[in-house]
């Protein structure tokens, strides 16, 4: 049993736990990475979809750091070192790189015992299979993070406009990535925040905590958590290092297609 979170009322947490044990609607809060906590609070029984492996790792990391067991299913290319750096405790990590044809049953069995299961489904998922897992999730008070598409999600996280700093035409090396993380819940307008991912000396930080470092970035950006309106066409912001306008991109893709 993990320790109680000192920042929240003890009574609430105990109530959540009792509710989870009674098999009720378990919406127990699961430890979430500090860099993401403004955007998202993981809840037991919920499904989250991510579009980048690093976000999936980050969602599992804090629970693992808090003493929970986490699992990764379908990750044949699991980067153990990056996971450890993000805070995943590898001694409490179960990895099923190739669950094969039984991936749904394997995931269900993992959901039974692990707090956070990060799944990369090997095939497209229909709503029925997803429903089976959802029911299991609610009774077991686990969190399912899907790297890929999933029929019903509580929230979809996507990395937008990630820009790496460091490499520059042969010199330098990858140092840090500043990305905009968008969280979409249903049809509501997405919430966005800028994050360093991985940061310069920490694996994941929100930009506000790093304003001094942000000045050093190639393209400093303004406010931190910007609950912007419905997503419109963004500015001309091409990624760092692209020479030439976006039109070049089309030509390139078309030339060799």
């Amino acid at each position: 049993m993990p320790a109680l979170d000192p920042s929240r009322p003890v009574l609430d947490q105990l109530r959540e736990r009792v509710a989870a044990m009674e098999g009720g609607p378990a919406r127990e809060a699961v430890a979430t990475h500090a860099g993401l906590s403004d955007l998202l609070q993981l809840r037991a029984g919920a499904t989250y979809s991510v579009d980048a492996a690093s976000v999936g790792l980050a969602l599992a990391a804090e629970a693992s750091r808090a003493g929970e067991w986490v699992g990764f299913a379908g990750w044949a290319d699991f980067g153990a070192e990056a996971a450890a750096e993000l805070g995943v405790d590898l001694t409490r990590t179960v990895l099923v790189p190739e669950p094969g044809e039984h991936w749904l049953e394997v995931t269900a069995a993992l959901v039974d015992v692990l707090r956070v299961v990060v799944l990369r489904p090997p095939a497209s998922v229909d709503a029925r299979s997803a429903g089976v897992l959802d029911a299991r999730l609610r009774t077991r008070s686990s969190v399912l993070v899907v790297h890929g598409d999933w029929p019903r999600c509580d929230a979809r996280l996507s990395l937008e406009e990630s820009r790496w700093s460091g490499p520059d035409h042969g010199s330098g090396r990858l140092r840090a990535r500043r990305a905009r993380l968008a969280v979409r819940r249903g049809t509501a307008p997405p919430a966005r925040a800028e994050v360093w991912f991985p940061g310069i000396d920490a694996p994941l930080v929100g930009v506000d905590e790093r304003s001094d470092r942000a000045a050093r970035a190639s393209r400093p950006r303004g406010p931190v958590l910007e609950p912007v309106g419905p997503r419109g066409p963004r500015g001309p912001a091409g990624p760092v290092g692209v020479r030439g306008p976006g039109g070049l991109v089309v030509e390139e893709a078309g030339a060799c297609g």
């Binding site: 450890a84 001694t91 990895l95 099923v96 069995a109």
Partner: peptide, 12 residues
């Protein structure tokens, strides 16, 4: 379900 070697523990 899927065999002994299919479930792994990552180590550094």
């Amino acid at each position: 379900m899927i065999g002994f070697e299919s479930v792994l523990r990552p180590v550094l």
